[in-house]
Structures are given as C-alpha cells and as structure tokens.
Amino acid sequence: MTLSPMDDYPIHQIPEVIRHVGTSDRNFYDRYYFNCHRRLSSAATTADDPWFIFGLGVYPNLGVVDCFAVVRRGDDHVVVRGSRALGADRNDLQVGPFRVEVLDGLQRLHISLEPGHGAVSFDLQFTADAPAVLEPRHFQRQLERVTFDTQRFVQTGDWSGTLTVDDDTYVVDPADWRGNRDRSWGVRPVGEAEPPGRRAAETAANSFFWIYSVMRFADFAVVVVVQETRDGERIMGDARLVWADPAREVQWLGRVDHDITFIPGGREPASATLRFIKPSGATTTVECLPQLANFIGFGTGYGLEQDWRHGMWQGEEKVEALRLKISELDATMKLFCPVDYLASFRLTSDDGTVHHGEGLFEFSVIGPHDQYGFADYTDVAPE
C-alpha cells in the first residue's frame, strides 16, 4: 500500500489510502470536462471560430489516467489525446504535455497542452461566474448490474489565455470567451468493452435518449438533463435555474417536455423546444437553436473506436493526434455517439419575459425511440 501527499489531508472517506476508492468496480471513474467558445453575441465572432472541448479522466481500478482535446473549426475535427499509467498521487493531473491545475477550488482552474503534439495547443484559465451546482444522482441498473451510479456538478464561467489551432493563435479574452465545466465521478462504462451477455438481447435497455444543456443568460444559467428509454420512461429528468448571485437559491423549473426537429436524413437536431412545466401549470419555454456541432465521439474515447476508449490501457505513456473532416465522417457512426452543440437559446418565462442566451446543447438518440419514430438503430429522420 502506497501513501501520497493527499493522504496528509483529512479527506478520507473509507479506511484506505486516498488512491483506493470505496468500490472494486472496474468502471469507477473521476473526470473533468470543459468547453470554451467565443460568445455568439460578440462583434468579433466569425464562422471559423473554434468550438473547443477538453476532458481528463482518472480510472483508479484500471490504473489509467487519460485526456483529450478536440476542436471543431470549419470542416476540421482536430484531436490530441493522451494516456498514461496512474500513479499514487491523485494530485498529479498531468498526462504527458497535458495538465490540469486547481488554482482555487470551485473558482479557478488552469488547463494546458504544450505545443508540438499536434495541431492544437492551449494555455487557458477558467474563472467561475456563478456557483457550482450539484445535479441529481444518476443511477441506472440493467438486469442485475449497476451500470450508472454517478454524481456531477456543473459551473459556468469565463476563459482567459491562448488557444492555438494550426497556425492561428487566439487571444482568449474573458470579455469575449465563455463556457462551462463539470466534474463527475462514480460508476459508468469505461475501459475495454466487456462481454454484453444477456444484455445484448435487451434492445430496450440499450436505447439511449439524452439531453444535457447548460444555458448561460445575463444573470442566471439553466441546467437541463434528460435521459429516457424508447417509450419515454424517465431515468433522469431535471431543470434548474442557477443565479449568478450565490446568495440566491437554485430554483426547480418543472417537469421537462421536449420537442425535437431533426435534420432530414440523420438524427442531428435542427432545433429543439424544451418546456418546463410545474404542477400549477406554470410553464417556462426554451427554444434551442444549434449553431455548431462538435462530434465528441470521434477520436476522444467515448466509445466509437475500439482502440481508444476512456480508461483503456495504452501503455506507460502515449500521446497522439488526428484530424478528420466533418464532411467525411461516417453517417452511420454519427448515429452512435453524443454530439456537443454550441447553441443559442430563447427563454420565455411564465410571465412572458424573454431572455436570450447561449451555451451547450448536448444531444443523442441512440437506438429506437417511439416519440420520434425511430424503430431501429439506423432509422433516420425522413427526407
């Protein structure tokens, strides 16, 4: 058993050293996610601005820590990814040229990727503009196996620093660049694929409908999460309003209804309308308009490629880069991964007040879904 500097802090939760978590489940993980974009309302915004996403995950029972950075710019999908053997010190958040540093817990974090490892490098600081808020516990059991048991918090903020894509370096000014970040941990499928066994015959259990949206308005954010089965049964469903002023309480907005309009020939949303309905009938409506898609399933470890999955053993250390063209992505493979959209939002409250915002609209409908007429995995919206 090996000690680390973290063991000198009074933060233990079980009678083990910090490096050992409270379950032997191979799928336990602990992860950071960040996104960064120029404000859609900025006078400097152009069609070629990058839509940047970064993630780092620790997998204690697999002995791996890995990370990725993915940029959508124009028709380019640019990825740099890294993996290494996990050591004893959980405060060591470096993977080769990548690094995450917590400068001030729940307030400021620093992420970086040294130049020379692909077409992307960055040196960025995230500064919160609102309090972090816990989301509902995510729990799902398929047959007898717990497949999801996770906790997550989310937070909006501004960015500063530099981001380089190919030969272009963007000076990231907090007046113009924003985004959100989250931290999640618990049990979810990671690493090398496990034999599906009986679950392979359970088609309904393998359907996955997902909406995860973080909308930033002038004085508040709205966080929405929906997961449901093919017939609409809810596994998760929540909508909260988070005030930028930490003295104000987070507000539950109501039950979430959704109405998605799809781009013909696929499952990508052209637009979406979300309604948050309280028992009194009071309804808040948000019209969502996706602006730019980042197909995070390609090259980053979310499961499309069998040779690089989150938590998969890649050796003592490995860093690699790849570049794809959005226009050349396999149309069928796009049906099997979540997509992170930079989106604009128009919120109409129950009293008719209108607010305009922007942020993340993450969406996926994998497999059958009755509401939208998808009877099989490869069904698409009609032309």
Rank of each mutant, 00 (worst) to 15 (best):
V223P: 00
A221F: 02
G301Y: 06
H77P: 03
G301C: 06
L342S: 04
R240W: 10
P15A: 05
N27K: 08
G357F: 00
H20S: 11
D350G: 06
Q251L: 15
Y341T: 03
H37P: 03
P382R: 10
L109H: 11
P136Y: 05
N180I: 03
G237K: 06
R108D: 06
H138A: 12
G179L: 08
S160A: 12
R181H: 09
A205C: 09
G265T: 07
R137P: 01
V226Y: 01
Q306M: 11
S24D: 15
M312S: 12
L324E: 15
A247K: 06
S42C: 09
D75C: 02
A175E: 14
E316W: 05
A69P: 00
V100M: 11
V154R: 03
H77V: 11
G82N: 06
H37R: 13
F28L: 05
L93M: 15
Y341Q: 02
G22E: 08
C337F: 05
V286M: 05
S207E: 12
V171S: 13
E383Q: 10
Y170P: 08
E192S: 10
F276C: 01
N61P: 13
R230C: 07
L292V: 13
D238T: 13
H356F: 09
E101P: 06
I11K: 08
F262I: 08
D307H: 13
G299C: 05
L163A: 01
G96Q: 05
R145T: 15
V365W: 03
P269N: 02
A44M: 09
P174L: 10
V172Y: 03
P5I: 07
A43D: 14
R188I: 01
S327M: 04
G299F: 03
H20T: 13
G116N: 01
D104C: 04
T169H: 06
A44I: 08
D182R: 00
K278E: 14
V190Q: 04
C36S: 12
K318R: 15
V172W: 02
L347I: 00
